[in-house]
Simulated scan of single mutants.
Amino acid sequence: MKKEYKIGLSIIGLLLLVFTFTDMNISNAVYNPESKFGLIFEAIGEFPSAIIATFCTVSLMLTREKDKSIKYNLGTVGYIVLLIFFSLMASMIPVKYLHGPKALIPILMAIYITVSYVIAKKCATTHKEELRRAAIVGILTFIFVIIAFNSIKFLWGRERYRHMIEVGSFAGHSMWFIPQGFASGNEFMSFPSGHSANAAIMAWITLIPTFVTSLKDKKSWFIRFAILWTLLVPVSRIVVGAHFASDVTMGVTITLVIFTLLKNKYINNLEEKDAIHMFI
Rank of each mutant, 00 (worst) to 15 (best):
V235R: 06
E187T: 14
N186Q: 13
T230H: 10
Y112P: 01
H163A: 15
V137N: 01
E65Q: 11
S169N: 09
F211G: 05
H127T: 10
S174E: 09
W204K: 00
I44P: 03
S214R: 10
Y97A: 03
W204P: 02
A120F: 08
Y79T: 06
G138S: 13
V167E: 15
E42L: 11
Y161F: 14
K122A: 12
M250A: 12
W229E: 03
V233M: 05
L60V: 03
T253W: 06
E130F: 09
N269K: 15
K68N: 08
Y31K: 00
I52A: 00
I165K: 00
T22N: 11
F211L: 05
T206W: 11
S87V: 08
F154V: 01
E159K: 14
A120P: 02
G8S: 07
C123M: 07
V252A: 10
P192R: 06
K66F: 01
Y5K: 09
I119Y: 10
P94V: 13
V240D: 00
A203N: 12
Y31E: 07
L108P: 01
I40G: 01
I201N: 08
V58G: 07
L231A: 06
V18H: 08
T230E: 08
E46L: 08
I178K: 06
L98I: 07
E46G: 10
R133S: 15
I139M: 15
D217R: 12
E129S: 08
A199Y: 06
V145I: 02
I258T: 00
H277K: 01
A245C: 05
L232R: 03
G45K: 00
D23R: 03
A120V: 03
F170S: 09
L215E: 15
M61P: 06
H163T: 15
T54C: 12
L60N: 04
T206F: 09
V81M: 14
P106S: 09
S116P: 01
H195R: 12
L62A: 12
L83D: 00
I40F: 13
Y161C: 05
I139V: 15
R64W: 11
D247T: 05
V235W: 05
V115G: 07
G168D: 10
V233P: 04
W229T: 03
T255K: 02
M1A: 13
A200I: 02
N150F: 12
I147P: 03
I146M: 13
T253L: 13
W229P: 01
L62H: 07
E65V: 05
